[in-house]
Amino acid sequence: MPIISVIIPCYFNESNIPVTSRELIANEVNFPSDVTFEYVYVDDGSGDGTLAALLTVRNSHPHNVKVVELAGNVGSYNAIVAGIAQATGDCMAIITADMQDPPALMVQMYTYWQQGFKLIIGNRQDREETGLQQVFAKVFHMLMKKIALSNIPDGGFDFVFLDRQVAKHIITLQERNSNLFYLMVWLGYPYVNIPYVRRKREIGKSRWTLKKKAKLFIDSILAFSFFPIRAISVMGLVLGLAAFSYGLYIIGLRLFGSQEPEGWSALMVVLLFVSAFQMTALGIIGEYVWRGLDAARNRPLYVVKEVHDQTKVV
């Protein structure tokens, strides 16, 4: 009898939780009768009533709902890893608590899993959101596909269905400052891509700030691509050739007695440009060095404050 663990990271989702739990439980009727469900909600250090709402759901369904309470906010990806570590299912589904991704898609995902696929991806073919958020998402995933992982699906994804074997790899890697979903693709297992339209958020406000988006962009590039370092090398080579050529030009003027150009303005422009490039290069190298230091410290990705499961009814 297969067990499906549904992992739901939660952060300031107090209003979403009752709706989310109802939709997930209602979706069970679409599965074969021999399938058992386990719901692993992870409270990522929310500062509102999310934990209380989760415990209410837990008390209503004590036999198949587990609430993982983290000591502090560690980000959704680390919260997902915490949920994977606590899950006991043969396969797992990862879905957000805001219900922008359709739970009904899990039925098709489960069918592919039964056929032997270890990873099934729900790919956002389009989204109901408009404006800058949609533009940012399209540009982000287009760049990632070109300079990071060429085999990721277009449009991005954070709704996945994975086998326990893939989950074990994720736990073993314990990779930090990375993109968890790209890491699943990087493992190399053949995957199935199921396109869908991401719904507009109806309840609550997204905590996916510009700062977090920028960090994810940097993490994704540095974790899966050598493009920044290679760009520094190429730019350094180009500047070096330009400097060498200009040096030959100045020497030629001196040797042949021509009047040397005053060139103070041009010199300052070159100096400022090269200095800016050097600082940018140092910043990129510093990002790599910091990530190496962070990995060397080997601090845990998360700290579990308490697990509320069937052995403890709150």
Score class of each variant (00 low, 15 high):
46 S>A: 04
246 Y>W: 08
172 T>V: 04
50 T>M: 07
191 Y>E: 05
54 L>T: 02
17 I>V: 12
132 L>F: 06
51 L>F: 11
28 E>M: 05
26 A>E: 15
213 K>W: 06
192 V>I: 14
46 S>N: 07
258 S>F: 11
32 P>D: 10
138 K>W: 07
289 V>R: 15
33 S>T: 07
27 N>W: 04
151 N>T: 14
219 D>T: 12
70 L>T: 04
83 G>W: 08
297 R>N: 13
82 A>R: 08
54 L>S: 06
194 I>F: 00
97 A>C: 10
279 M>E: 14
3 I>F: 05
286 G>M: 09
227 F>V: 15
300 P>E: 09
74 V>N: 03
152 I>T: 10
102 P>M: 09
268 M>T: 12
211 K>F: 04
54 L>V: 09
9 P>F: 01
171 I>M: 08
226 F>P: 14
92 M>C: 03
39 Y>V: 02
18 P>D: 04
300 P>D: 10
129 E>Q: 13
113 W>H: 12
235 M>P: 03
24 L>G: 01
6 V>L: 13
165 Q>W: 00
113 W>F: 05
214 A>C: 08
264 W>T: 06
206 S>W: 02
11 Y>A: 10
79 A>K: 02
54 L>G: 07
204 G>F: 01
286 G>Q: 09
16 N>M: 08
82 A>M: 08
256 F>Y: 13
221 I>V: 15
18 P>K: 04
153 P>S: 07
221 I>T: 12
68 V>W: 05
292 G>K: 11
283 G>F: 14
267 L>P: 00
23 E>I: 01
173 L>N: 10
124 R>P: 00
2 P>D: 07
154 D>A: 13
69 E>L: 15
219 D>I: 09
53 A>Q: 12
147 I>H: 08
113 W>M: 07
100 Q>A: 00
16 N>P: 02
210 L>E: 03
225 S>C: 15
120 I>A: 05
65 V>M: 13
91 C>F: 06
126 D>G: 10
202 E>V: 14
36 T>W: 04
112 Y>R: 12
271 L>M: 12
24 L>W: 03
210 L>V: 02
164 R>L: 01
153 P>N: 06
2 P>E: 13
249 Y>K: 04
93 A>R: 04
240 G>P: 02
21 S>H: 14
311 T>G: 13
163 D>H: 06
246 Y>S: 03
79 A>R: 01
178 S>A: 00
123 N>Q: 15
284 I>F: 15
155 G>M: 07
187 L>M: 03
252 G>Y: 10
54 L>Y: 09
142 M>V: 12
186 W>R: 10
148 A>L: 05
208 W>S: 06
66 K>A: 06
45 G>Y: 10
187 L>W: 00
79 A>T: 05
64 N>A: 07
246 Y>D: 01
135 V>W: 01
